[in-house]
């Protein structure tokens, strides 16, 4: 009897394995994201070659055991370039989501708490931002700030800001109407501390769920801007610019563009799948 109670705790690898068999999609998504995270953190040991080393004899080699993803027009190993580009692409994606979350939350809190004229002005601003197609908005910001991964992250982050502002404002209005905020006001708490201790923690859930679903779209937007040529400058590898770099060789050496494409698609797919799972779990009330 006692072993039966203890068994699940001891055999956690088996439990994980059973969960993986039951939910193959989720397990694959988690494994792939772990691989991508490993590429970002430890590109050196995981890459098979130097990503910048030009070997003219090896140019345009198809994928093989020596070169997993083949080589590009200069004979650089493509797999190593993808691995070394991961950190830049992932950093700018996360930075974009954090910028959007931070700016949007501030605007949403401001609008929801101040109400009146401030609310009207902020929400009209959000409406106007939503009326400009997001890629065009990013292009405006890139044109003003110049190209580069950090600036792309800014551009995409500002593009995702309106969504966060709307969600946070709606949550603030909901939380404001609740009994505990009223109680805190009656007790004499200051407005700032009410926002900090009551409104922010209770409004954070939906904003964080939106942030997880935004990771996928931000990844798509950043790779699109990289593809259009506004990402990292040439020698440095980055997913979007790798894909753009192989465009000219699509007819004869498809792997230069399409294998990095595949990595982008799989990452977005994995992130979206996990975000959807998290969202469903929240709706179902499972922490």
């Amino acid at each position: 009897m006692s072993t039966a109670v203890l068994a699940p705790r001891r055999a956690w690898p088996r439990r994980a394995l059973r969960a993986a068999v039951r939910l193959p999609g989720r397990a694959t998504a988690v494994l792939f994201m772990l691989l991508v995270a490993a590429w970002a953190v430890l590109p050196g040991p995981l890459a098979t070659h130097d990503p910048l080393r030009v070997v003219p004899a090896d140019r345009l080699q198809p994928p093989s055991a020596a070169h997993l993803f083949g080589t590009d027009e200069l004979g650089r190993d493509l797999y190593s370039r993808v691995v070394h580009g991961t950190a830049l692409s992932l950093q700018s994606t996360l930075a974009a989501v954090l910028i959007g979350l931070a700016l949007g939350s501030v605007l949403g809190l401001l609008a929801g708490f101040a109400r009146g004229v401030v609310d009207a002005v902020v929400m009209r601003l959000v409406d106007v931002l939503l009326a400009v197609p997001s890629l065009l908005l990013s292009l405006v910001i890139v044109a003003a700030l110049g190209p580069g991964t950090a600036k792309i992250a800014c551009a995409v982050g500002i593009g995702s800001m309106p969504g966060f502002a709307r969600v946070v404002r709606a949550e603030v209005l909901r939380v404001r109407a609740s009994g505990y905020v009223e109680a805190a006001t009656v007790v004499g708490a200051r407005r700032f501390s009410i926002v900090l201790w009551h409104v922010v923690p209770n409004a954070a859930g939906p904003a964080i769920v939106l942030a997880t679903t935004t990771i996928g779209t931000a990844m798509l937007a950043i790779s699109s801007l990289g593809f259009l040529g506004f990402g990292a400058p040439p020698p440095a590898p980055e997913w979007g610019s790798l894909i753009a770099g192989g465009r000219g060789y699509l007819a004869t050496a498809w792997w230069i563009s399409l294998l990095p494409c595949l990595v982008v698609v799989l990452s977005v797919l994995a992130v979206n799948h996990l975000a959807r799972t998290a969202d469903r779990a929240r709706v179902a009330g499972v922490p």
Binding site: F227, W254, S257, C261, N272
Partner: peptide
């Protein structure tokens, strides 16, 4: 559709082109 929304437009274009 879940797969479809995860594929960037330029990837679809490049694959079709190839």
């Amino acid at each position: 559709p879940a797969v479809g929304i995860s594929v960037p437009t330029f990837c679809v274009g490049l694959v079709l082109l190839q």
